[in-house]
Design a protein around this nucleic acid. Structure first.
Lengths: 352, 352
DNA sequence: TAGCTTTATGACACCGGTTACCATATTATA
DNA sequence: TATAATATGGTAACCGGTGTCATAAAGCTA
């Protein structure tokens, strides 16, 4: 039978829906129904067609489907700060879900606050008409972007630090976020080790994540009767340089902290640099805590105690929301963060 | 006139080639010629049509074009080891070139040597029919993958460490590679600082890059009458762990090296860890050299002296080869590497 | 068994472009 | 001037699917 089919198709030609229809003795519309899992196909017919589909190795053309659907079988991944280390993780997570679904992931880094950022995105959305987009932080908070997605009616899932229930939830539909449990654990860990002179290097206050993380750390500290020292509370913006600068300021103080909690790993790496230059040993002279569990965390020496943000899981869930849920449903999912204790945290030296 | 057009199109409807043709009073075929820069259109006609196209904001539907062309307006980026830090750079580079071209980048990480790796790729290539693919190292060396691309006649550009002129050039057509000048500079740098007990942690010998880099380093050392000490020549596989393990072995030797050159930054980071644990100061007790100029290089303390591989440029050129060159031309491009001197290299202590 | 739903299927137009082929207008050559 | 060559534009078919709507077949009720 295989020879017949090959002869039928011709050498090297790929099977189309028409071929399947003719072989099955049905109309192409019925084959289309089978492809799209329409319930109104007789079980017998469906099985016959399915059998032929596998036999001839038919796979519907995404271009043609996209044209007819008026929606490309693509998911766009939109983000700024393309150099952030979590981007690759997020890509992997989304692809974990998309693999085998026939939907491809197209990456769309952009430059937030550039003049062309919105128009470029509009170009992409209008011409490609992706089936959906995943928007990563921090740009997931951009109001104009959300308005654009709303205007063009693009299914979307935002990944953000904002916990459910706050005001922002109304803006977009689907949101995947992360809780602050890991931060609380980290705060408890530091306080439990006996630290009392505790510094903090905060994230960019424009991003909700900065507040969520701080809140988590403070909660954990408070549970052990500790707190961020008001005079050791430094601003940062999530960059390596800002972490370095803030740590330098902290370590130059006469009454310097015995522990510094950083709102992300990049800034913690900056703090390593400041400690290195000040000839302070980690964790002997200084305990450091980060957030993200970025690849760099366990490359540092000693490896960094940090809070793991399950970026890959979050992106996988985001893709899942887009692919499997009805577009109308409002969905919010929250994943847990967790403390990872490594070598950068220890008890303060006696007398400090 | 604008009102007329809006009325003509109807509220919110996007202009199609038919609209443009009707407004211009020509056939859609003529408009199609203009879109595709066909020479056989009267200059006057062309300008008229172009003017209308911009006025109504017409952008041809990539799905429809792809369907007719039998080739999606997509470029696939194929790579394994998705966690490598250069991946994001490569993505950015390819997008630098693709932006505004109407071609999207779809990412396709895969697991080399998994059983399904080739079939998954075939699925992608056969069903999506991308306009081309860029294959990143190390998988760019996979023979079966190249055969598959050849069989399916997919335009491709490989990014690889292999320099032009060697045997492998015959396998694929377009290749973007990097020279080993930076490695030679690094070798000269280390030798010039006065080091003579020089250790080496090599890359995975299965990858051509390992040989190219070693060759470059050795050349630079030799120019100053130095060489890798035969008893300090350790194998590695580009991973952090392998770098750590190799460095530990080197540093435990009674006659330990005063400098270690590593075939990439990840392994150099592992060497930092080994040095930290052995309580050796960098660069006072030990000079370390890396390769890649990965993000981690200047996050380490002290920042790592390394060889910059212009990953972003390479990917931009690869995309350019796919987009602008005739598919038949055999192209090979080579970009320069360069030494970046930072804080991890210094003169050996007297007496060592 | 007639009459009415419900279910399964097919005919046909359509998504928005492109190519093949043909018709016509214009220019070049003898 | 007649004729061939060239430039340009039009028509129809096609790429490979999906939507709408009509209709045939089957199931249910009375």
């Amino acid at each position: 039978m295989t020879e017949t089919i090959e002869a039928f198709l011709g050498r090297g030609r790929k099977a189309t829906i028409n071929d399947v229809a003719r072989l099955a003795g049905v109309s192409k519309k019925t084959v289309s129904r089978v492809i799209n899992n329409s319930p109104s196909v007789h079980a017998r017919t469906r099985d016959d067609i399915a059998e032929i589909i596998t036999r001839v190795g038919f796979r519907p053309d995404p271009q043609a489907r996209g044209l007819a659907f008026r929606r490309a079988l693509l998911i766009g991944l939109i983000y700024d700060n393309p150099n952030a280390q979590y981007i690759v993780n997020m890509q992997m997570g989304a692809l974990d879900r998309l693999r085998g679904s026939g939907i491809e992931l197209v990456v769309h880094p952009c430059t937030w606050h550039s003049e062309t950022f919105l128009s470029e995105l509009r170009d992409f959305l209008e011409s490609q008409r992706p089936s959906g987009v995943i928007v990563l932080p921090p740009i997931a908070e951009d109001r104009q972007l959300l308005d654009l997605l709303e205007e063009l009616n693009v299914p979307r899932v935002r990944v953000t630090a904002r916990t459910s229930g706050d005001g922002n939830a109304a803006i977009g539909r689907e949101i995947v976020s992360c809780d602050d449990i890991g931060c609380a654990e980290a705060g408890a860990h530091v306080a439990g080790l006996g630290h009392r002179r505790i510094g903090y290097i905060g994230g960019n206050p424009d991003y909700p994540s900065a507040h969520v993380r701080r809140h988590g750390f403070e909660t954990g500290l408070a549970a052990h009767g500790a707190a961020i020292a008001p005079d050791l509370d430094e601003p940062g913006n999530y960059s390596f340089e800002s972490g370095y600068a803030a740590a330098r300021r902290l370590l130059r103080r006469p009454d310097r902290p015995t522990a510094i909690i950083c709102a992300n790993d990049e800034m913690a790496a900056g703090a390593y640099k400041a400690a290195f230059e000040a000839d302070l040993r980690i964790p002997g002279d200084l305990t450091l805590i980060g957030f993200d569990d970025a690849p760099i965390a366990d490359r540092l020496s000693p490896p960094l105690t940090t809070v793991r943000l399950p970026t890959r899981d979050m992106a996988r869930m985001a893709a899942d929301l887009l692919v499997s849920r009805p577009a109308t449903a409002d969905q919010t999912m929250t994943v847990p963060s967790a403390l990872i204790v490594r070598g950068s945290s220890g008890a303060p030296k006696a007398g400090l």
